[in-house]
C-alpha cells in the first residue's frame, strides 16, 4: 500500500522540537552578555559578605556554611529568572512558542526552557559551591553534601520561579516582584535542602529522608511549575 497515511504524532518528533528549543536557549544563555557569569559572581559576593557581617570566626563559619551556601545559591538562581519569558515576549518569540506549542503542550515548552535556564545559570552555581565551601571552612564531606543537595534542589527553585516569571511577564519591572512572589514558595525546598546538607556531617541525623523529600519536591514542582506557567503565558499575551 502506497497511500500516504497521516502519521500519528510520535514522541520522537516532539523530542526533536524540544531539543531545538533547548539548544537555542543554551546558546542564548551562553552568548547574551555572560548572564551566567553574573549569577556566579553574585553568589561569590553573597558568600564573601557573610564573614564581614559575622566576623572571621572559622568555627562559626563552618557551622553556618551549608545554610549560607543555600541562601546564596537561592538568591543567585532567582537573579535572571524574570528574563526567562520577558526576553521572548519583547522580541515576539513568545508568540512563536505559543503557536508552535499548539502541537504539544505549552507546559512542555516551559519545562524545556527551565531546563536550559537551569543548565546555563544555575548549574555553574552548583559547581562553584564546593569551592566556596572552602572559604566557609567546611569539611570535604560537608562541601560535597551541600553541592549534592543543591544539585537536587535548585531545579525546584527554577520551576517555581518559572511560574512567577510567567505571571509577571507583562509587567514592566517584574524582576523584584518575581523574587517576592517566589521566595515564600521555595521555603520548603530550603528547609529540606539545608537539613539534608547538615545531615551529612551531623552524625545522628539521617541524610536520606530529607534528601528524598528534596528530590520529591523537585519532581513535584517540575510538573506544577511548568503547567502553571504555561497557563499563565497563554493568557498573558496581548
Amino acid at each position: 500500500m502506497l497511500r500516504m497515511v497521516p502519521l500519528p504524532r510520535f514522541a520522537g518528533e516532539d523530542l526533536q522540537r524540544m531539543l531545538a528549543l533547548y539548544i537555542r536557549d543554551l546558546r542564548l544563555g551562553v552568548r547574551a552578555g555572560g548572564g551566567a557569569l553574573v549569577g556566579v559572581l553574585f553568589f561569590l559576593v553573597v558568600i564573601t559578605v557573610a564573614p564581614f557581617a559575622i566576623g572571621p570566626d572559622m568555627n562559626l563559619l563552618s557551622r553556618i556554611g551549608p545554610a549560607m551556601l543555600w541562601i546564596g545559591a537561592l538568591l543567585a538562581s532567582l537573579l535572571g529568572l524574570d528574563r526567562l519569558f520577558q526576553a521572548d515576549r519583547e522580541d515576539g518569540s513568545l508568540d512563536l512558542l505559543i503557536i508552535g506549542s499548539s502541537r504539544h503542550m505549552m507546559a512542555l515548552v516551559v519545562f524545556v526552557k527551565c531546563l536550559a535556564h537551569w543548565t546555563t545559570s544555575v548549574l555553574p552555581l552548583v559547581v562553584a559551591a564546593p569551592l566556596l565551601a572552602l572559604f566557609m571552612n567546611m569539611t570535604f564531606d560537608s562541601a560535597l553534601g551541600t553541592a549534592l543537595t543543591l544539585l537536587a534542589g535548585t531545579p525546584a527553585i527554577t520551576f517555581i520561579g518559572a511560574a512567577g516569571a510567567a505571571v509577571a511577564v507583562s509587567l514592566p519591572r517584574g524582576g523584584l516582584l518575581v523574587t517576592v512572589l517566589v521566595l515564600p514558595l521555595v521555603i520548603p525546598v530550603l528547609i529540606f535542602g539545608v537539613s539534608a546538607a547538615y545531615a551529612v556531617t551531623a552524625e545522628p541525623d539521617p541524610f536520606l529522608p530529607p534528601f528524598l523529600m528534596l528530590c520529591a519536591l523537585t519532581l513535584f514542582f517540575a510538573v506544577i511549575g511548568p503547567f502553571a506557567a504555561g497557563y499563565a503565558l497563554k493568557h498573558a499575551t496581548d
Binding site: 537555542r24 546558546r27 542564548l28 552568548r31 547574551a32 519583547e90 522580541d91 515576539g92 518569540s93 512563536l96
Partner: peptide
C-alpha cells in the same frame, strides 16, 4: 507580528 520573533544574539 510587528515584532520579528528572532533573537538578535543568534
Amino acid at each position: 507580528g510587528d515584532r520579528n520573533a528572532m533573537k538578535p544574539a543568534l
